[in-house]
Design a protein around this nucleic acid. Structure first.
Lengths: 241, 241
DNA sequence: GCCGATTTGTCCGTATGTATC
DNA sequence: CGATACATACGGACAAATCGG
């Protein structure tokens, strides 16, 4: 394993911003000073700073310095963040999760399903529909299609816990990246039947394509959430004009 | 201006992925081959590849190569993308935009407003409420607070067009980065009164903090959108366990 | 199982350009 | 103008993973 110096530096500086050691609107030590501080090359420092800028913790200003633009006083909402499972989120937010498996079947991708999911026509897929409850209130549904050959031995019992835990733990698979599209749509009759929408007639829909470390797409999932159950944090950089 | 070789390479490879020259699931030429192809150093190639990986176009695999994981057959939805103004989006999607200014006033940030917006207590702010209509249908509202000293000469007439165009054009300001939080919430009476919600009782809320190139926070905006008017694309990378 | 070639991952040192003060 | 700071680029070195002989 390489040292991954830049990641340690990234975490260290980020913590110092979050705990106020590097104050909001102040400047970080210069790259040369950080080089001496951490005893590494300027490249590693720059890599860590680039990550911090990507996450909107800092704003590098040519000729001036690197300014801290993250205000710890503004707290993030508590919803989904990053690539997290329902169980992990439940643990983080401290509620009791419950998953109900409503459907578990093998299907073969036809034209329509292939167009929807992005899997090749003829792929053997495992189709799973689950509902998620937090403290007894059903707040979301997950409709997933897994590439069957990538999830051997999957059972409804496993699905009721966590598919990711099974894939990463038992199968030793590595999840790499997921591309997600979030929209808000009208609630369907199925939504209203399965979820406790409390009268809401719209839901938040997140469609995601997930790839493993081999670059194989192993999952397409459509998550439908009750309003106020999801939040998404996002930083945008305006391109030069 | 520096050459920005890596950006040209990034765009070139990205286009070749989108137009199918580099096919989904295939491998890019190796970094050494790309170095020869573009006549530059490996560092520049790697920087372009890192950006493509960040955007989930490719997945680098140590010891194997860089796999293309973006499928051009899966098209993105057409909503907000990146940091874009309402007018820019209207132009891109081909509808006729109309902005109505409902409020335009100067305020001083008290404790509550400071906590909400992230501006310092006592800041002189310009408070603006606007509604946005697409082809005659009011689809969203924007409630913004600008740091007054950063937007000198702002008038309701300018606000009715585009504040960004004024800032970037007339004032020569550079918008740098914006941090946005998206949630779905119940519609308020004001939402129902101002927007044409077509019976929907939930709205998509995007709260954003925007910084200029000097690292000064110049704007806090709460955008409330009718369902189906917004989409957000997002890539997540699962951290190593 | 081992070894070597290939490929990506990490790190370093240096040089030059550009913006700020 | 010079000093400082960030931006870009290059070249070299070694580590780690993969694959084929």
């Amino acid at each position: 394993m390489p040292k991954a110096v830049f990641q340690d530096i990234y975490r260290d500086i980020r913590e110092n911003i979050e705990n106020g050691t590097y104050r909001y609107q102040s400047f970080l030590p210069s790259e040369n000073e950080l080089t001496q501080l951490y005893g590494c090359s300027r490249s590693s420092i720059r890599r860590a700073l680039a990550m911090l800028a990507q996450d909107a913790y800092v704003l590098p200003q040519q000729g001036k310095g690197v300014r801290v633009i993250r205000n710890p006083a503004i707290t993030d909402p508590q919803g989904y963040s990053g690539l997290e499972t329902f169980g992990e989120m439940a643990k983080r937010l401290g509620f009791t999760p419950k998953t109900t498996v409503l459907k578990f079947e093998k299907v073969v991708a036809g034209d329509a399903l292939a167009a929807l999911t992005g899997f090749a026509v003829g792929s053997d897929l495992t189709h799973i529909l689950r509902s998620r409850a937090a403290d007894g209130v059903t707040v979301s549904t997950d409709e997933s299609y897994y590439l069957s050959e990538s999830v051997p031995g999957l059972t409804p019992e496993i699905v009721a816990n966590s598919v990711y835990a099974y894939l990463e733990g038992t199968l030793g698979m590595k999840i790499a990246t997921s591309r997600r599209i979030i929209t808000v749509e009208g609630a369907t009759p199925a939504d209203e039947q399965i979820m406790d929408l409390d009268g809401f007639n719209a839901v938040c829909v997140m469609r995601s394509h997930t790839f493993d470390a081999d670059g194989i797409m192993i999952e397409y999932t459509e998550t439908r959430q009750k309003p106020e159950a999801l939040s998404s944090v996002d930083t945008a950089v305006r391109p030069a004009r």
